[in-house]
Design a protein around this nucleic acid. Structure first.
Lengths: 201, 201
DNA sequence: GCATTATTTTAATCTGCATTAAAATTTTTG
DNA sequence: CAAAAATTTTAATGCAGATTAAAATAATGC
């Protein structure tokens, strides 16, 4: 129960702030965005942000926490709904992409983890590593159940995550593009995984 | 002839500086690295960097220029040496990856293009877009020559570039890992492209 | 070895933002 | 509607880290 954030005024504004910040950070870089830039998107003053967050570092941290939660949500759904490893991987990718380019986005790219204070950095790194590990487990499961051709799950996972994480770098809200991404990415990123195809080398 | 930088003292130090800066930026983020951080890697004072570069913005710009040059070098070699579009794509990926994880690396991730001054930003954006366009042309050529299955070249290109560009985020110099990356990535990123395989959906 | 040029350091200065405190305004509650 | 709580603004302050000028050292050419 305490898990689900109440939709009160505070949380609504806070969520708007995190989305605005994510957009700014993705588009203008961390150092390139001042708190004034973020607050301008909200029709507020820069100082007002301090009502929601202790400082800029925590703003980044919260953006990353939100990004991690959304990624995990997609992963959980994929795992729950997919029968084979391959299906789970494809569904995860689809859900994650849908979130990133849909109204719940933008999702912050985790480019500035090293700038976080130790406590926050370690938390984000841990959750980030766990995310990767779960995806690798899905791949391994796919290999075991015969839906995915044997491969180096670590490297394959890194490749897929990179392709996903990079999306906010070139997607900036164009709705037609969003549709295309959702339609294409799950296939593009899983086409190479499927078992039982000619290796064509 | 003027293209080839002389290997004099100045250029050698400058190159060391750009590599040190790329490493710092990749590992600690742009705002997380001070000029002192970079200079420490070179056994110099922060002020000494100003002998090689006008300011921090230009240091980033030069890192990105270098990254662009190395990427283009890999692309050129791939195009020259590959017979089919698929081979060209695979060779490009291999050469680019070799550069990124080899002694010529690290290569800076272009995360802070928006922080560059207009002139520099536009140059880097232009060269970056050209790079993507050339890769998409390779994919299209592969489709035309029958080596690559029909696909959305724009999206496929974005996916491959994302996977490549993200490498410096998780690779930090481990030589065994470097070998694995070079051995695996070209296959992982082209396995899904090849024509004439069961679609397995 | 002397003069010139290249490179680096020392020691300040400068400044854009982050940050804060207190006041003002808006919203909620009873 | 009055009082309390929540939210935002105004107006400073502070500081890390970029930048600069001048001096010091090292390299190079004649």
């Amino acid at each position: 129960m305490a898990q689900i954030a109440e939709a009160n005024r505070f949380n609504v504004q806070r969520d708007r702030m995190l989305k605005a910040a994510a957009r700014c950070f993705n588009e203008k870089g961390y150092s390139g965005t001042s708190l004034k830039d973020v607050s301008r998107h909200l029709g507020l003053t820069d100082a007002a942000l301090y009502y929601y967050v202790r400082n800029k570092e925590e703003l980044v941290y919260q953006c990353y926490r939100r990004a991690a939660e959304l990624g995990q949500e997609a992963m959980d759904r994929g795992r729950a709904e997919g029968a084979t490893g391959l299906e789970q991987a494809r569904l995860y990718i689809r859900y994650h992409v849908e979130i990133m380019v849909g109204e719940r986005g933008p999702v912050a790219i985790m480019s500035e983890i090293p700038s976080l204070k130790r406590e926050h950095r370690e938390e984000i790194l841990a959750v980030s590593r766990r995310h990767s590990a779960v995806f690798e487990a899905i791949l391994q499961q796919g290999i075991d159940d015969g839906s995915i051709a044997p491969c180096n799950v670590r490297m394959t996972g890194n490749a897929v995550m990179g392709a996903l994480n990079w999306i906010p770098k070139w997607f900036h809200g164009n709705p037609a593009m969003a549709e295309t991404i959702v339609a294409e990415f799950p296939d593009i990123l899983t086409r190479g995984l499927a078992a039982g195809q000619a290796s064509c080398q």
